[in-house]
């Protein structure tokens, strides 16, 4: 795993849930090569459901969170970033997860930090959900991934299959997404890094033949939305 992991993807592909779940998971891992862990929320496109809303939970788990300039104003919709987010990027002892906004437009904000991506310290992941209306097929998903690459002038280094329908996700839906993700990976000549599944909805044991798997905890979704 690289020190800096940038998570990009289509609007609503699940970048934030993945970022938060990944950070929480890494925070629990023993023997990581970096002593510190940061989550950088670079979503300046979305007004709701941003990883900074989980700042308290993340910080309790030992993860520093860098987001907007006005620390307390998580509801602000200003495309203003805190200068502090350069600190983890420059700290060789800190692993960083960067949660980008959706689409090429949401990814654009990363360009100002290009100097940190000139070496070999980073990975750029593109998350795809083939049950999202605008990425139902491989060609549409490919167009979105390519648009992000064009915007960032950086190649996506790996794909993440996050095909789901929230609490209505079934094994078949994940399998169907997995097949499309494999086709996308083949067409784009990129590795399919792993497949996500919503923990508590799907049992990993029912996803035979798919590996590696990554459970997502749905930290961002308020429980009342599923009543």
């Amino acid at each position: 795993m690289k020190r800096i992991i940038v998570i990009a993807g289509h609007y609503g592909s699940g970048k934030t849930e993945l970022s938060v779940s990944l950070a929480m998971q890494l925070a629990k891992e023993q023997g990581r090569p970096w002593r510190q862990l940061s989550l950088v929320d670079l979503d300046v496109a979305n007004p709701y459901f941003r990883s900074r809303e989980k700042r308290d939970m993340l910080e309790k788990a030992g993860i520093t969170v860098h987001a907007d300039t006005f620390g307390g104003m998580q509801a602000a919709e200003l495309p203003a970033l805190t200068a502090s987010l350069r600190a983890p990027l420059e700290n060789p002892d800190c692993q960083v997860i960067i949660d980008l906004g959706g689409n090429d437009a949401g990814a654009r904000v990363l360009r100002q930090f290009r100097k940190y991506f000139e070496g070999d310290e980073h990975a750029l992941w593109a998350v795809v959900n083939f049950r999202r209306y605008e990425t139902r097929d491989v060609l549409d998903a490919r167009a979105h991934v390519e648009a992000i690459e064009r915007e960032l002038e950086m190649p996506v280094t790996g794909l993440v299959n996050n095909t789901h329908l929230l609490r209505e996700t079934t094994e078949e839906i994940i399998l169907e997404g997995h097949e499309k993700a494999k086709a996308l990976a083949l067409a784009m000549d990129k590795p399919l890094l792993f497949t996500c599944y919503p923990a508590g909805v799907i049992d990993a044991g029912d996803l035979k033949g798919i590996s590696p798997l990554m459970p997502l905890q749905l930290y961002m979704r308020p429980a009342y939305l599923d009543k």
């Binding site: 609007y11 209505e168 079934t170 078949e172």
Partner: peptide, 17 residues
């Protein structure tokens, strides 16, 4: 069961509807 449901953000779904 595979359904033909898609995952949409409210605003996208409103516009499409």
């Amino acid at each position: 069961m595979i359904t033909d449901k898609v995952l949409m953000k409210g605003n996208e779904a409103f516009a499409e509807a």
